[in-house]
Amino acid sequence: MTETTGHGAGYFERVGARRFAPTSHAGGAWAADEQHFSPLAGLVVHEIERTRASEGRPALPMGRIGFDILGRIAFEEFDIHVETVRPGRTIELVRATVVIAGRAVVSAQAWFLADLDTAVVAGGEPDRLPDPESASRWSMGSVWPGGYVASLDTRQVGTPSAGRATAWASTSVDLVVGERAGNLASFLALVDTANGVGVRQDPTEWMFPNLDLTIHLYRQPEGGWTGLDTTVTFGSTGQGLTSTILHDVHGPVGCAQQILTVRPLPVAAVQTS
């Protein structure tokens, strides 16, 4: 159920039943006239949860969500369409599509799984991260531009190196003005930040945007802070991979993968940056 927060600031404003307008906080890092994908991913989850609740679907935890970025996410109003592809009492598949000016720009598919007591066989997870309060404050704005990056409170754990970093991210900005998102949507709204915390090359000389984001969860995260234990790998033929172990303040919850298209910026763009 959507609730009023009263904070006033949000990444998006709801301007219709399924239609939204980005605010300045949603500004992208690669181009000023684009939206950052991270808060949009959280909004998609928010809309999936709202739709499932309004339809009386079973209250199942999300085990996986995969996003495909189909094109440029312009800084314009957009619609989100949600449909249940595979209904079920213990397993369910839901699809969501983000549409700008009649064109699909993001497609997402989410699997919901049965909530069962498997504590007796639980195990195998990595070590938890140090608490965010013990980590060093770090301004991502020193590396990246854009309203989304400026909205974050980021803390570094340890000393980063090229393609390897661990950080906590949080924000005081709501997903939607006047609405309270759930823990899952709030947590996942920060996951795409991973591709910006462990940079392998200077983003003023190289581009490495992700074409997708796939998240697997073995525990439902709690909101507040999203922990990103991230490794970035560049191949030799234009592809890269950002791999992240995801944490909340209680420990690891799952992992995320992002495929990257790696390319040098044009010389003219580098000279004027």
Rank of each mutant, 00 (worst) to 15 (best):
Y148S: 12
G123R: 14
S170V: 08
S172Q: 15
T154S: 15
G198W: 00
A21P: 03
I91P: 00
E3S: 14
V15I: 14
G63A: 12
G27R: 05
A165E: 07
A150T: 12
L93W: 02
R57Q: 14
L93Y: 03
F208E: 03
T261W: 14
V177Y: 06
A181G: 12
R14G: 06
Y11M: 07
R72P: 07
L43N: 07
S107Y: 00
A59G: 05
A119N: 08
I91V: 13
R180T: 09
P22V: 02
L246S: 05
T51H: 14
G56C: 04
P252W: 08
G10M: 12
P22I: 01
T272P: 01
Q35D: 00
D115M: 01
V270G: 08
T233K: 01
G254E: 06
H81N: 06
P39S: 01
A269T: 13
V85H: 08
T51F: 06
V232T: 05
F234A: 04
F187A: 06
Y148I: 09
F112Y: 15
F12L: 11
V197A: 13
A32N: 07
S134Q: 07
P126T: 05
G182P: 09
V82E: 00
G158V: 09
E133L: 08
R263L: 10
L228T: 01
Q258A: 01
T244Y: 01
A41Q: 15
T4E: 12
T261D: 11
V98P: 04
P132C: 02
W111Y: 03
A119C: 02
F187D: 04
A135I: 07
S38T: 07
L175W: 09
L152Y: 09
G16W: 10
A165T: 09
G71A: 11
V15T: 14
Y11W: 13
Y11S: 11
G27N: 11
A41F: 14
T166K: 12
A21W: 01
A194V: 05
D117H: 08
R180V: 01
G178F: 02
E205Y: 08
D117W: 04
L175Q: 12
M207K: 07
A169I: 13
L190Y: 13
N183M: 05
L246V: 04
A32P: 01
I215Y: 06
T233W: 04
I80Y: 10
I80T: 12
T233I: 08
D131L: 05
F78R: 09
H46A: 06
D68F: 02
T2I: 10
I65P: 12
P130S: 06
R200Q: 11
H250R: 10
D153E: 13
Y11G: 11
I73K: 13
E205S: 08
P203V: 12
T4Y: 11
Q109F: 01
Y11V: 05
S24G: 05
D153A: 10
G123E: 15
D174N: 09
G28C: 10
V157P: 10
E133H: 04
P126I: 00
P132S: 06
D202C: 07
G240V: 15
A74G: 15
A32Q: 09
L116E: 13
A26W: 03
V45G: 04
V157K: 14
P132H: 06
A17F: 03
L260H: 14
E3N: 15
L188E: 04
A122M: 02
D174R: 06
N210Q: 14
E55M: 11
G223I: 00
V106M: 10
L60K: 14
F37E: 09
H7M: 03
V45T: 13
G28L: 09
G88C: 10
